[in-house]
Amino acid sequence: MHNVTRPFPWLHRLVALALVAMLAACASGPNANPRDPLEPFNRGMTDVNDAVDSAVLKPVATVYRDITPDPVRTGVNNFFQNLGDVWSFINATLQLRPREAAENFLRFNVNTVFGVAGLFDVASDMGLERTRLDFGQTLGRWGVPSGPYLVLPLFGPSSIRDAAGFSIESRGDLVQGLSDIPMRNSLYVLRAVETRANLLRATNLLEGAALDKYSFTRDLYLQRRESQIEDLKDKGIGLKDDAE
């Protein structure tokens, strides 16, 4: 019965997976990258993710991008971004960022009420900026180290800290709270396809530019996250969309 109400229970076991992967680090060679002691595991998981992406996600996302009118895609993206504003509000509050917390709280309410459940981004037109904050950043803000680099099933680049944050946020996902299971699963799929469609151009550029796509992606992810955490600690500011 528990698995019926939670159609993807494995999402909540990502932390357990991370801990298992940490134990695998002892099998890594002496020349392992100190930030990536789990490299054999991570490269294997990357190969699995790439295979799934090539066979399913990328083709579906390409068709979705090509046949879906831009206004519809904008509305879909706005809807899911609006749901994300709830967690940004929570994380801004936990990080003691009153301005970002207030802006994201107002954004969610304005767009939900006046933007037809978030399909229209009325809040941005009013000058309310979106600040993207996740629980991994919150943990980093209060000094929790990132831990080893970790590639998650389907979700890709992460770290032990960020995987823990993702697991916590997945439990509070507003889509998961829907009681209509077919609708909930449809929204899961739509969100995954929309997210992948937004990454098509970046993926094509990466595949054409990187000699070792794995190392390039790992280093880019770790540098970006480190920069974000340092911004939170040193500058006392939130992370705007254009900083991503």
Rank of each mutant, 00 (worst) to 15 (best):
H2D: 12
V4C: 13
V4K: 15
T5D: 01
P9Q: 01
P9E: 06
W10Y: 04
H12A: 13
R13D: 03
R13M: 02
L14K: 07
L14R: 08
L17T: 12
V20G: 11
V20S: 14
M22R: 14
A24F: 10
C26Q: 11
A27G: 15
S28V: 11
S28T: 15
A32K: 09
R35L: 10
D36G: 10
L38F: 09
P40A: 04
N42F: 11
M45N: 00
V48E: 03
D50Q: 10
S54E: 07
S54Q: 06
V56S: 06
P59K: 02
T62C: 04
P69W: 00
D70M: 08
R73F: 03
T74S: 08
G75W: 04
V76M: 10
N77I: 05
N77E: 12
F79R: 01
F79E: 01
F79Y: 10
Q81K: 11
N82P: 13
V86H: 07
V86N: 10
S88V: 02
I90Y: 07
A92G: 08
L94F: 07
L94G: 12
Q95W: 09
A101C: 02
A102H: 01
N104G: 03
N104E: 14
F105T: 09
L106E: 05
R107C: 07
F108D: 04
N109Q: 03
V113K: 05
G115L: 00
G115Y: 03
V116I: 09
G118W: 02
L119I: 10
L119Y: 03
D121M: 01
A123N: 00
A123G: 03
S124K: 15
S124M: 07
D125R: 13
L128I: 15
E129R: 15
R130G: 02
T131C: 04
R132C: 05
R132A: 11
L139N: 03
G140H: 00
Y149S: 13
Y149V: 10
V151N: 07
V151D: 05
P153K: 07
P153M: 14
F155I: 10
D162Q: 05
I168K: 01
I168T: 08
S170L: 05
R171F: 13
V175F: 01
Q176R: 13
L178D: 02
S179N: 13
D180K: 09
I181Y: 07
M183W: 05
R184H: 14
S186P: 02
V189C: 08
R191T: 04
E194G: 03
R196M: 01
A197F: 00
L199E: 08
L199R: 12
R201Y: 09
R201M: 02
A202D: 04
T203F: 05
T203E: 13
E207K: 05
A209T: 15
L211S: 13
Y214R: 04
F216C: 03
R218Q: 15
Y221K: 00
Y221E: 00
R225G: 06
R225H: 09
E226R: 12
E226G: 15
E226Q: 13
Q228F: 12
E230Y: 05
E230N: 12
E230D: 12
D231K: 15
L232V: 06
L232K: 12
D234L: 09
G236Y: 07
I237Q: 10
I237C: 09
L239W: 01
D242I: 04
D242W: 11
A243Q: 14
E244D: 10
E244T: 04
E244V: 10
E244Q: 14
